[in-house]
Design a protein around this nucleic acid. Structure first.
Lengths: 133, 133
DNA sequence: TCTTACGTTTACGTTAACGTAAATAATTAA
DNA sequence: TTAATTATTTACGTTAACGTAAACGTAAGA
């Protein structure tokens, strides 16, 4: 008799949805946008390991603040048929650009924080003064 | 006769728009959302120094990836009538949160970059090999 | 057999942050 | 006086990334 495979290689839409904490609708949406292209069993979608990886990449892209369109490059990069060095350079440039942006944002945030801490001190002093009257 | 003031203290909508590289529409939109409350001369808006500062804050908020709703707290913080220590703590917490998020994003980006550089090397080797045949 | 769970497609709804256009008024320059 | 510039309000349009609902098919279990 067959044993249950320890590591699944095929997934239903809701299995993936559960695993990644997203909705089936979202997954279908990604497919609509051409970011996923699962097989079919009749009308039902069947996702394999490669599809799962692509989903991981999509979600990783989202976490770094990429739009789906921006993530498309990342995903394409991981499918061997289309991947080429030119694309890779391109993507690396994008990533460097994003990183620069993040660094700038962080600097601005730090400035705002130190700015507000001054305000904080001013506030506290004002409070103290008003308490003393 | 009157001399032109060196430092303006009143601005028309298009003056501000030009100065900050945005459209009058955007400024009106910010007003609609209650982030700006310029005076009027008849039907025309007149912005003063304080309004200008608030606009600066709105745009700064955008640069660090805040939505207008999130920026609202920042702006409110800078108008003395409403500002209080509680709000300030709140805002500081938000900013710290945002910074954490940015740091995480940067880490993910760095991971992706180093990941892709491996791919890059693999690519180059593959190219070399195929050239040698 | 009936219900429950899961799958599908189609299609309209939603939020944010404006863009764009139309119709109109007031001011200014030639 | 006429044209250009700048202003207003009203209101519909746009993009992204799904949410939500309807209407339907299918397979499993009590």
């Amino acid at each position: 008799m067959k044993e249950k495979p320890l590591m699944r290689s095929e997934y239903s839409i809701s299995e993936l949805a559960r695993e990644f904490g997203i909705t089936p609708r979202a997954i279908r949406f990604y497919e609509e946008k051409g970011l996923l292209t699962p097989q079919r069993n009749g009308s039902s979608r069947i996702f394999n390991a490669a599809d799962r990886v692509r989903l991981v990449l999509i979600l990783r892209g989202k976490r770094i603040g990429f739009s789906l369109e921006e993530s498309r490059d990342i995903i394409d990069m991981y499918k061997p048929e289309t991947a080429n060095t030119h694309q890779l350079e391109n993507l690396l440039n994008k990533l460097h650009g994003k990183r620069l942006l993040l660094e700038r944002q962080k600097k601005e945030i730090n400035m705002m924080i130190s700015d507000l801490k001054k305000t904080e001190n001013t506030c506290r002093k004002a409070l103290k003064t008003s308490e003393n009257k």
